[in-house]
């Protein structure tokens, strides 16, 4: 019997945006989109898609992508489809810009209710915009499911999912009964690149869209518990002492002497 796997993905500003192009509009507490740098699917979420596709490769599975957000760029959001996922479900509403995780969890849980049931719900380790690393944990609590974080391998077996959970030094093997929520980390290994065939197939697929109303939610349900008062770029003054020499090797030598002079080595 085919497993049904939901993967939660988020559209975020490209975290590789050079620091010089990273700007904040303090009057509205928002990031100013860097010109010419499109948003991306959150990196860890592509690892989660990869984990789902590996399960699909190994057996039989249906992979459904779920995303809540606003200003979706369709070329970006279709990437998981072009990697091989089966369907894309979007909830798009300007209100999602200012909701907190409790709200996001409500939206995703309602999306799962509409499109489920699922055997596995995967997400990324953390979203690279607000770096909170908490939405999937909230989803598990809301749905009454077990949760395991930081997977570097996800293997469903009879009624359980066996997870290798990355530690800073090594890993743990954890088993949880299915259905379960699992977050995936980059230790899983690189996410596959879309093939040309995948891109063509994805271009023909239309996302399913769900409105707040269809999800049975109102703006009042999503009033944030935690709200951003101020967003700013901390000031930092460079105080670097550049060591120069006759050539690069000489500079290396002088660097060692300078560090010794200060008793640092």
């Amino acid at each position: 019997m085919a497993l049904r796997i939901a993967v939660c993905v988020k559209q975020v500003p490209d975290p590789e945006t050079p620091a010089s192009a990273f700007k904040v509009d303090e009057s509205v507490n928002r990031i100013v989109p860097a010109p010419g740098i499109p948003p991306v699917v959150n990196g860890f979420d592509l690892h989660a898609v990869e984990a789902a596709l590996r399960i699909k490769d190994a057996g039989d599975a249906e992979v459904i992508i779920l995303a809540a957000g606003n200003d979706f760029v369709m070329d970006v959001m279709k990437k998981p489809l072009s990697m091989g996922a089966d369907a894309l479900v979007l909830a798009e509403d300007p209100i999602f810009e200012d909701i907190d995780a409790v709200g996001t969890v409500k939206v995703l849980a309602a999306m799962i209710e509409k499109t489920g049931p699922f055997d596995l719900i995967l997400g990324g380790r953390q979203a690279s915009d607000w770096d909170q690393a908490h939405v999937p944990l909230g989803l598990a609590e809301k749905l009454g499911l077990p949760s395991v974080t930081l997977a570097r391998n996800v293997e469903p077996q009879d009624g359980v999912v066996r997870i290798e959970r990355a530690l800073t030094d090594g890993y743990q093997v954890v088993e949880a009964p299915i259905p379960a929520v699992v977050t995936v980390s980059n230790e899983l290994g690189e996410a596959r690149y879309p093939t040309l065939r995948g891109i063509m197939a994805a271009s023909r697929k239309q996302p399913e869209r769900l409105t707040l109303d269809e999800l049975g939610l109102t703006a009042n349900d999503l009033k944030p518990d935690l709200s951003l008062r101020r967003l700013f770029i901390p000031e930092s003054e460079s105080q670097v002492e550049i060591i120069e020499g006759e050539d690069e090797a000489d500079a290396g030598r002088k660097l060692a002497l300078r560090l010794r002079e200060l008793n640092l080595i």
């Binding site: 670097v240 090797a249 000489d250 030598r253």
Partner: peptide, 20 residues
């Protein structure tokens, strides 16, 4: 990295590091 560094060498590590 030079914004936070206290000391720096601008160069190819293959030349700088062996001498260091």
């Amino acid at each position: 990295i030079f914004k936070s560094a206290r000391f720096g060498v601008i160069g190819d590590w293959e030349k700088v590091l062996p001498a260091f």
